[in-house]
Amino acid sequence: MTLAALWTVSPNVAKAQGYGRDSIECRSNDYRYNRCNTNWRDARLVRQLSGSRCIRGQTWGVERGGNVWVDRGCAAVFAEAGGRPGPGPGPGHGGGGWRPGPGWDTDISFVCESRDFRYNMCQVDVGRGGNVRIVRQISGTRCIEGRTWGYNRAGVWVDQGCAAQFTVERRWRD
C-alpha cells in the first residue's frame, strides 16, 4: 500500500488518505515528543514512515484523552482501533456484567524512574477510570505530565531524567 496523498493539518499531523476514514500521520520531529489530536479510545500503527523504530508504549502510544503521542523520531500513519471515547455500556447493554474483583479500588504506590535520561515504562494496571499522580518527585529533573511522564491503562512512563513516587488511584467506572 502506498500513501496516495496527504491533507496537511499542521506540520506534524496530517489526515492520511488511502488508510480509511479515521487515520492520521503523526511525527516526532527532531526526536521530540509530539501529541496529535485524535479523540480515539485506541489506535493502531498502520505504516511506519520513519527510520527510527515505532514501538507502542515506548516511542508511541495513546493518551488518556484519546490523543496519539510519538517520541524519539517515530513517524507513522495511525488508524482508529476500538471506537471513540465515551461512556461505556450500562447494565444490560452489552457490558457482560463483568466487574473487577475485591481490592480493585486499592491505591497503588511505586517509584518509576528514567535512568540515564532514558525512557522507561513501569507496568501497573491503571484500569479504566484510574488516575495517576506524583506523590513525591525524587529527581532533580522536573517531572512534567505529558512531557517527561505520563500514563495509560498499561502503566506509567517516564523520560528525560524524571524520577518520582507515583500513586495510582484505581476506580472502576461503568
Rank of each mutant, 00 (worst) to 15 (best):
M1G: 06
M1S: 03
M1Q: 06
A4M: 04
A4H: 04
L6G: 09
W7V: 12
V9R: 10
S10Y: 06
P11D: 12
N12C: 09
A16W: 07
A16G: 05
Q17R: 15
Y19Q: 01
C26M: 12
C26A: 15
N29M: 11
N29A: 07
D30K: 05
Y33E: 05
Y33Q: 10
Y33L: 08
C36A: 03
N37A: 15
N39H: 07
N39P: 02
W40M: 09
R41K: 09
L45Q: 13
V46P: 00
S52M: 14
R56K: 02
T59G: 11
W60P: 07
W60N: 03
G61M: 02
G65H: 07
G66E: 09
N67S: 13
N67R: 05
W69H: 03
R72G: 00
V77A: 09
A79T: 10
E80C: 08
A81G: 00
A81H: 10
G82M: 07
G83K: 09
G83P: 02
G86F: 09
G86N: 09
G90Q: 01
G90L: 02
G92H: 01
G94Q: 13
W98D: 06
R99A: 14
R99T: 11
P102H: 14
I108P: 05
S109N: 15
S109V: 15
S109I: 15
C112L: 04
S114W: 10
S114A: 08
D116W: 08
F117L: 03
R118G: 01
Y119L: 03
Y119G: 00
Y119R: 04
N120M: 11
C122G: 10
Q123S: 15
Q123K: 07
Q123P: 12
V124D: 12
D125Y: 13
G127C: 06
R128N: 14
G130V: 05
V132A: 08
V135G: 12
R136V: 11
Q137F: 07
Q137A: 08
S139H: 13
C143F: 07
G146M: 06
T148Y: 01
T148K: 04
W149F: 06
Y151Q: 07
N152L: 06
N152P: 01
R153S: 10
A154K: 00
G155V: 01
V156P: 00
V156W: 01
V156Y: 01
V158M: 01
V158Y: 02
D159W: 13
Q160R: 14
G161D: 03
G161Q: 05
A164L: 12
T167D: 11
T167A: 08
R170Q: 10
R170H: 12
R170K: 11
R170C: 06
R173Y: 04
